[in-house]
Computed example of a mutant assay.
Amino acid sequence: MRRLPDLEAWALFAKVAETRSFTRAASELGISKPTVSKAISRLEARIGTALLNRTSRRLSLTEAGRRAARSAGRILTEGEALETEAMDQATAPSGLVRLTAPMSFGIAHVAPLLPELFETYPELSVDLHLADEVVDLVGGGFDIAIRIAALPDSALRTRRVCRVRRLLVGAPEYFERQGRPEHPGDLARHVCLGYAYLPSSSRWHFRHATGEEVDVVPGGPLRVNNADALRPMLVAGRGLAVQPEFMAAEDIAAGRLEVAMADWSMPPIALNIVTPPSGLRPARVTAVIDFLWHHFANAPWSSGRMLDNSADDPC
């Protein structure tokens, strides 16, 4: 029967290779120098070759030692990470989680979840930063970001929650007064309200089910950097605007707003939970991610259920 690898000896070798010293390796690991020395000798005897050249004044890696050092280092790093993660999971999530989200989404959909979050995890604390501009997740020291966009490739870790539709909406009073656009080209005759953080805020792109695609340049008296600021103008019947479904769904259900050009769609965006690229997440961060994902993935607006009963794209 094949023996299991001597993982402890390989981890000790990795530390010796890193420090180039039995004494320093023993000190950093909190064990005795003889324990380290015996483990390396045991390992060399097992594999049948020397890993270290030893003199009274100097310690160096042999050719075999140099080849083995990198893999041994991964054994040590992954073992430490596994043990830390297991210890974190064995205790209730606690400590500070720094979370950033878009302003309107954060107020409407993140803040209402906080009472339940704190009841579920009473040892947690949250620093919630709301801003529509994209913040530097790593430079700002954030653990989690909610991002609603088509994300570019990056080193950040992304957990996609669901697709988010963008809808052209206006009040019934507006359509009674100005007429209802049927084609994107009709928007040249309409009052269009702008949002600065659309993927292309100076141009709206529409696609028809037949495959026809049309770009229009919206014109109107107002452009804002927060989607909530558009709502009073929309509900008052003073213009049309492109709104994400989670912003407009309640007003649509109540009849305050209506969807225009329903047979035309805009490129969908996605609701994403984004974290820094580091491999190990503390239990407190994992707990908040899982909590948010569950609630957002099951929200009525996450798949269009509030607007119709058809099955939209799955999250």
Rank of each mutant, 00 (worst) to 15 (best):
R57H: 12
E250H: 09
L271F: 00
P199M: 01
I289C: 12
A17Y: 02
E119R: 08
E133M: 06
E28D: 12
S302E: 09
E83S: 12
F175L: 11
A188D: 10
S201V: 03
V242E: 09
A241H: 13
L117N: 10
S37C: 03
G106Q: 10
R177D: 02
R189C: 02
L114Q: 13
P34E: 10
A108C: 10
A68N: 01
S278E: 15
L96Y: 06
S21Y: 01
Q243A: 15
H183N: 12
Y174V: 05
D263G: 02
A236Q: 13
A236V: 10
V191R: 14
V217P: 07
H190G: 05
W293G: 05
E8S: 12
I144T: 08
S94Y: 03
L234C: 05
A188N: 05
V16D: 00
E44F: 02
S302P: 08
I31Q: 09
A297V: 04
E133D: 03
K33Q: 15
L198I: 03
L240C: 15
L117W: 04
D88S: 03
L114E: 10
R24C: 02
A283R: 14
R238A: 07
L128T: 06
R98H: 11
T100K: 10
L43H: 12
A131F: 03
H295L: 02
E116W: 08
V110L: 15
H109G: 09
H129T: 02
H129W: 07
P268C: 08
T62S: 08
A101S: 15
A209F: 04
D6I: 04
L234Y: 08
E44V: 07
W10H: 02
A241D: 14
P277E: 11
P5L: 01
V169R: 12
P277M: 03
D153K: 11
E123K: 14
L4T: 12
L151V: 00
T91V: 15
E176H: 11
L292Q: 11
H109F: 02
N272C: 14
L222W: 07
R24S: 11
L240D: 12
A11P: 04
P184C: 00
V274L: 00
D88P: 05
L230Q: 06
D153E: 09
R163L: 06
A69D: 01
T158I: 15
C315T: 04
Q178H: 13
M1G: 14
E116C: 06
A39T: 14
Q243N: 08
P199A: 14
D6T: 10
I148M: 07
R231I: 15
L82A: 14
L114K: 12
A229H: 10
P314D: 08
F206E: 06
A262V: 01
N272K: 08
V134G: 00
E28I: 04
R66F: 00
G48K: 13
I148L: 06
G95N: 13
N226E: 13
F118P: 09
G170N: 03
R256L: 01
L29F: 08
V126P: 04
V259A: 00
Y174D: 07
F105G: 09
P152G: 11
R70M: 00
R66S: 07
S154Q: 07
G279W: 02
R147I: 10
V138W: 01
Y121C: 07
L99E: 07
R165T: 09
E116F: 07
V134R: 05
L307V: 10
E213T: 10
L198N: 08
W293K: 10
A171S: 11
A155C: 06
